[in-house]
Amino acid sequence: MRGTTAAMGLAVLAVVAAGCDSGDSPSAKKTTQPSNTTSATPTSGAGGVALTTYRSLWAAATKAALTSDYENPELREYAHDDALAYFVGSNLNNKEKGLVAKGEPVIAPRVVAEAGDKVTVADCVDGSNWLKYRLSDGKLADDVPGGHHRAEATVTRTTVGWRVTHLTIEEVGSC
């Protein structure tokens, strides 16, 4: 399976997470990521806002995944459409199975296209240290290792601000 849309879910990275969004607290905005970005990646304008939104979504998703909080309001702050459905669905699925995610994904997003109110972001999400654990005993849920997943997101200016509206995450080893 080459490219799976976020709405369909990705068992391994699906993360294990879920949730993200809103949250004005500094801790909700914190992500683990390389500090260097390619020179083609803008730091201001629509591209800069899109990167901030994308990073904030992953920070919120990581936070929500700690408790499989599918109702985390931060999800709606940074995601919409199928990207929101992906993170809500992943967390709900994990909650129903008694699973949570521990650790953090490592992201290194870059802008690859900008067209008015839409920005395309490419990434290689490293989920090696972001794994599912059982709440019942605190042990790893399975023996599926995390890994590197190629990701592509569309970040769109909506009536309520910039949101990740589409997210495609590919299988382990795709980047």
Rank of each mutant, 00 (worst) to 15 (best):
N36A: 11
K132I: 06
C20V: 13
G23C: 01
A122N: 12
S39P: 06
I107V: 12
A7M: 11
A153E: 04
V49M: 03
T38R: 07
T52N: 07
L84Y: 10
D21R: 04
L75I: 14
L75T: 14
D81W: 08
T32V: 10
V15Q: 04
L13E: 08
A7K: 09
C20P: 07
T4A: 12
K132L: 14
A101C: 15
R157L: 13
S68C: 01
A7G: 09
Y78V: 15
A115Y: 06
V88C: 01
A7D: 15
A60P: 11
W162T: 00
L10R: 01
W162M: 02
N94A: 03
S39D: 12
D82H: 05
E74R: 01
N72S: 14
A83D: 12
E170K: 02
A14D: 12
G146V: 00
T168G: 06
L92N: 13
T158A: 09
P73N: 07
C20G: 09
P42W: 09
S128D: 12
D142C: 07
V106W: 11
Y86Q: 14
T120H: 04
A14P: 09
N36Y: 00
G161K: 03
D21A: 08
V106E: 13
A108L: 11
G98Y: 09
P42A: 14
S39Y: 04
A101D: 14
Q33K: 05
S22F: 10
D82Q: 12
V155T: 08
S35I: 11
L51I: 03
D142Y: 03
T41Y: 07
A153H: 00
R150V: 05
T154A: 11
H148K: 01
R55V: 11
D143K: 03
V160A: 11
E170Q: 03
L131Q: 02
